[in-house]
Design a protein around this nucleic acid. Sequence first.
DNA 1: CGCAAAGCTTATCTG
DNA 2: AAGCTTTGCG
Length: 776
Amino acid sequence: MQEYLQGLNEKQREAVLHKDGPIMIVAGAGSGKTKVLTTRITHLMAAHQVDAFNILALTFTNKAAHEMKERVERVLGNGEARNLYIGTFHSVFARILRFEADKIGYPRHFTIYDTDDAKSVLKAVIHDLHLDDKQYKPNLVYNRISSAKNALIGPEAYKADYAIQQEDVRANRPAIGQIYDNYVKRCFRNGAMDFDDLLLKFYELLRTIPECLSRYQHKFKYILIDEYQDTNPAQYEIIKLLGALHENVCVVGDDAQSIYSFRGATIQNILQFQKNYDNVTVVKLEQNYRSTRSILEVANEVISHNKGQIEKVLFTENPEGEKIKIVRTLTDNDEGKFIADSIQEQKLRHHFANKEFAILYRTNAQSRAFEESLRRMAIPYTIYGGISFYQRKEVKDMVAYLRLIVNPRDEEALKRIINYPTRGIGKTSLDKLLLLSNEKDCSTWAILLQAREYGFRAGTLMVLENFVTMVKSFASMLEKSNAYDVAFYVGKQTGLVKELFNDKSTEGIQRYENIQELLNSIKEWTESPDNEEGELVDKSLGAYLQQITLLTDADEKDVDADTVKLMTIHAAKGLEFSCVFAAGLEELLFPNAMAINTREELEEERRLFYVVITRAKQKLWITYANTRYRFGQLVQNEPSRFLAEIPPAALDKSFAGTKTISGNPLRAGWGGYGPGSSRESKPERTTGNGLSEKPSYLAPKPTVNKTGEHVPTPGFAPSDMSELEAGQRVEHMKFGYGEVIKVEGSAHNPIATVRFENNGEKKIMLNYARLRIVSP
DNA sequence: CGCAAAGCTTATCTG
DNA sequence: AAGCTTTGCG
């Protein structure tokens, strides 16, 4: 038997050895599914001589894809793994779409719009339709359109669907269909795809171009999909098409961990897999290698409250381990303190490293209290889920230039930098350009190219043409130089780098460093060997730009760094930690208020709870707070209903003090952690009852205008400023009389310094201020 | 035009 | 409480 099969249990081996035909691997939490997937790929290549070029593996994160490739390479050691097609749905499809773009009318280097870009387009569309963006909030509209796309419903189908229309009308947003329509057209005009388009357009490619369907059906003889429970209908249909020829589709998933329905994922994909394919082999991996028996028992019990799952019972041969600890605190800050204290204590007593701890929560907003408490204890930590490096303003600015060079139709990029750094193309000119591009239904860039014909003022026309010339010169440089050289030159030539360099504030220096880091990243990209991209090798700037939009900060941050990890439960999917703190187990927070209206929603929240429990290898704390701040206001929360689903026998009853909670509907015996038990609690904030907000002995603030109101002389009329010079006496509407000290500034923006009798020295911009010359 | 202050909104999860 | 947008002003 091959060496790589040795470490597998019977079920795992069965999953690996199955060669042809559809197979569903139901892999419980911690049952070694990554190992099975990689070994399966290895086995296909080593034992069955399947060519790496014929294997497609779709994962949930870029990082998982990387790891898988590495593991296969480690076993095979012949460099073949580089030819595997492994990546996320989005990155793999983006790569193929780049290759086939012309067939569906897109430029090869189409831009991928991230959520911010997409929302910005939506804003413009909503504005152009003269709709109220209070009623049509871009965020909401975006989600609605995203759901439609993930269900493969285009604008026409959207408008024709009675149920959808009823929903929109009832929500008083009847025009979403129209917005959707315009949005799609606008994105196409911009040569851009949003995240959902990467799936939708790939699907359309397969559906409408028979030669493409055939090519990729033949190419991908073996298809493997990780985290199948979180795929949506678009992904489902794509796989069905791609796999139709060989039917060698291997899906791995756990219905109990399906937590992405908000992204259009439907648990039906995994529940129905057996009905959708003939002769499906089903293998269940039920032995858990990750957690202690105590932890697994709690997980099993909790998930049993859900209906309609694939039947399975997870077991483990691991030791029983410690019991679970449930901890109540008075406030969210106390919760933070408790967790930081506990981490410190565990480190001292049991010699855990920082990186063995994770604090997991339902919403990103909860991270603040933990950050503060960890910082106070000097415990290093990493937060996941903030804005990624490539979302920072200065980075996006620079990237916008590069985007425009590669794809001049990219209107979002153009809007961002056409007047940054300032070059005299103001709002008026830009609005006119955008209006024209809407009228002619062509890209803003096309209007710019013919600016001469649209009656701009001479000066404006000149700056517009200079801008066009500059961008064109960058683009032509791209033909001869590599991406890094072009980017470096752009930074220098536009003055962007210089502007950041001159800003010596702390943030300014940081921004400058970020740009340097961006340049480094481009350099690394251009120089790295061609082993990451399968057979469609593309080291162009365009390929780089598409790739960075698909990176998440989980891909950018180093998991091995010795820091405590803070993230949402969603982000923790697929990860494991020795010690886990599941925080904020409160009604309305977890389960979240947004998800308690239907059984389906509530069951998904419960699966989320299941996921957080099963992240823990050795120790698990579950915490909740009586009160926490929301929108700057203190709110009270009941303990989460999920706590009552935990079997009492699994709990550590002696834990954290002896206080019982009076009036708590849950079992007594859990500790309290609040001002009484923590070292330094802030006194309770006095909440606004309208009384004694301010001590009465304090004098009221003076209400008199500090500047002292000046009453202008009757018939006040500003004088002609062109002749103003030092020494003249002037009158100002508000500041009264004064003497001109000096006149400076450029010709089109002169600034006078005036010493006023009652208001001291002021700088006055003569273009805007109203001054009357009293005497020469 | 560009800045600062005031005002308003917001926070479920994400590639 | 914090971030983003609008406003008011020189």
